[in-house]
């Protein structure tokens, strides 16, 4: 009897991302007719454990003083111990950078197959099949992961929410045997964004691109964003140029966002950028070029120079929202 393991971290709350992992894990477990097992690595709060237990058959809390926060080697060792013992068909993680780092290594240690950025997961003929965008969003692939277990990080916020089970899961403590790692030492963890302002969770995003030409126009975009309670983002070109922090980057190699409103200013809309905003509900673009690819992906567009548009647009929005 196997299982599908959804892996969460105790240092994160059970937020939309975690619920997405639980939803994907629950559905896959049902398809495979196996137990949905949730593993919470690190010191989980009582609320987190209670929340997770609504959506699982078993919840394992794997606490250890060395797992108070993420450490590449120690966290991997912990997950390996758990994985080797549970022998699951699949292990699912979210799309945090830490998860992306863990997946290939964990898959290798468990003798399984790694997979990433899964939009959907299905059990077909004994294999887990994931779908994901490839070639910078130009194509969509369905890939079977033949060697069990499939170890996959999922596009967590794009996953449907889990359904409450008829009864809450049994909660168990998982004893871990860990030793401090002397080869990799965390010296400082620098936090730029607070949990509340994560781009992935933003409802409204205002984003600027190469067409802005420098860091200064972003201050005008910021004023516009503030007027509508939005958060700031940028295309890769703007981040690479150093105009704005790398954490603002949206796209294939940046954040994947799913806001109600994504306002793209002076962004041409290369497929790599579109990949990051595929889950946005409404995309609005302002661009000087009516043939810019971004207009093929947005609901509303305004052809114009941001220099003449952004200021008056902000004033108008303030007036309308007053």
């Amino acid at each position: 009897m196997g299982s599908v393991v959804s892996c969460l971290f105790g240092w994160n709350p059970i937020d939309r991302a975690a619920l997405g992992v639980l939803g994907a894990g629950q559905r896959l477990a049902k398809q495979c007719s196996v137990e949905h097992v949730v593993v919470i690595v690190g010191g989980a709060s009582e609320t987190s454990v209670a929340d997770a237990s609504k959506f699982a058959d078993v919840v394992h809390v794997a606490e250890h003083p060395l797992l108070a926060s993420y450490h590449s080697e120690t966290t991997l060792t912990a997950l390996t111990q758990i994985g080797r013992s549970l022998k699951p068909q699949a292990v699912l993680l979210g799309n945090e950078i830490y998860c992306q780092e863990l997946v290939p290594r964990l898959a290798h240690r468990l003798g399984g197959t790694p997979g990433g950025d899964a939009l959907s997961l299905n059990a077909e003929e004994g294999s887990v099949v994931i779908t994901r965008t490839v070639y910078g969003g130009k194509a969509l692939a369905a890939i079977a992961l033949r060697r069990s277990p499939a170890v996959v990080w999922v596009r967590s916020r794009a996953q449907e929410l889990p359904q409450p089970m008829s009864q809450n899961a049994e909660v168990k403590r998982w004893p871990l045997d860990l030793e401090p790692c002397s080869k990799v030492k965390l010296i400082d963890r620098h936090v730029e964004v607070q949990e509340a302002s994560r781009l992935e969770d933003a409802r409204v995003i205002v984003s600027g691109g190469r067409g802005l030409g420098g860091p200064e126009p972003f201050t005008h975009l910021q004023a516009l964003a503030s007027a509508i309670g939005g958060q700031m983002a940028a295309s890769r070109a703007a981040c690479d140029a150093g105009w704005v922090p790398p954490g603002w980057q949206v796209g294939q190699t940046g954040k994947k966002v799913s806001p109600q409103l994504y306002l793209a200013v002076a962004i041409s809309g290369a497929s790599q950028h579109i990949m990051g905003i595929a889950d946005a509900k409404t995309i609005v673009a302002i661009n000087t070029d009516p043939d810019a690819p971004i207009f093929q992906h947005c609901q509303f567009g305004l052809v114009g120079d941001y220099r003449q548009v952004v200021g008056p647009l902000r004033d108008k929005l303030v007036e309308l929202l007053a």
Partner: peptide, 11 residues
Amino acid sequence: QTDEGSDAIEA
């Protein structure tokens, strides 16, 4: 880089 910012690591 991390989701929240960055880690400084000695390895």
